[in-house]
């Protein structure tokens, strides 16, 4: 056998080695591994929720976990949902808002998001009204210069470079405000879902 062959191990061998090493891990290392597992569990649950898993089933899965794990997974689940939310999409997905309200336990957070979304949508509408005619006329002129005209032609303003720039500026402005709300929500759950240090978690890790 060559030295390279020595490196080829079966999945079982790798698992056995990991299990052996686990026994030799320090409390900090065990804590880190456990933390990674809980982060992954929170993210996986978030993805399943976004794919249609009902909130009551999410709650049922969390209820099957030890209390400390449950709090941590809820925290990571919420973090993942917040990270996936941006100003252009969050308002279209009531599911995300429902979960944020449920997991944060603070209805004020979701109300702040809804208020912000309303302001954002009003600002978009106002910008459209202010710019629509000018953008449409400019696009018609551009098309006519290319020999394209007629009653069947309706310029697509929302995909025009000019409109996309206006929308991008508004998105940045309101996204910044959304990030502040998201941070507030994260801070809130950070304080209620702080991981227990290694010395207090020995039983949970075993």
């Amino acid at each position: 056998m060559s030295s390279n062959d020595d490196k080829i191990k079966s999945a079982l061998e790798i698992a056995l080695e990991k299990a052996q090493k686990l026994g030799a891990l320090s409390d900090e290392e065990k804590y880190r591994l456990k933390d990674e597992e809980l982060v992954a569990a929170g993210e996986a649950l978030a993805k399943r929720y976004l794919n249609g898993l009902p909130l009551r089933d999410v709650e049922a899965e969390l209820a099957g976990r030890a209390e400390e794990d449950r709090r941590m997974i809820s925290h990571h689940l919420l973090q993942h949902l917040l990270d996936r939310s941006d100003i252009g999409h969050i308002g279209r997905d009531d599911n995300i808002l429902a979960a944020i309200q449920h997991l944060s336990g603070d209805p004020g957070i979701v109300q702040s998001i809804r208020d912000l979304l309303q302001k954002y949508e009003s600002a978009i509408e106002k910008a459209k009204q202010e710019n629509l005619s000018a953008l449409e006329a400019a696009k018609r002129n551009e098309l006519e210069s290319m020999g394209i005209s007629g009653s069947a032609v309706e310029p697509a303003i929302e995909t025009s470079r000019e409109w996309m720039q206006i929308q991008q500026d508004l998105d940045s402005h309101y996204q910044e405000q959304l990030e502040q709300i998201k941070q507030k929500c994260k801070n809130l759950t950070d304080s209620t879902h702080t991981a227990t240090p290694p010395e207090g978690r020995e039983n949970a890790i075993q």
Binding site: K139, L143, I148, S151, A152, V153, E154, P155, A156, T159
Partner: peptide
Amino acid sequence: DFYLTEGE
């Protein structure tokens, strides 16, 4: 760039 509707 543009939509087509009933017409010419």
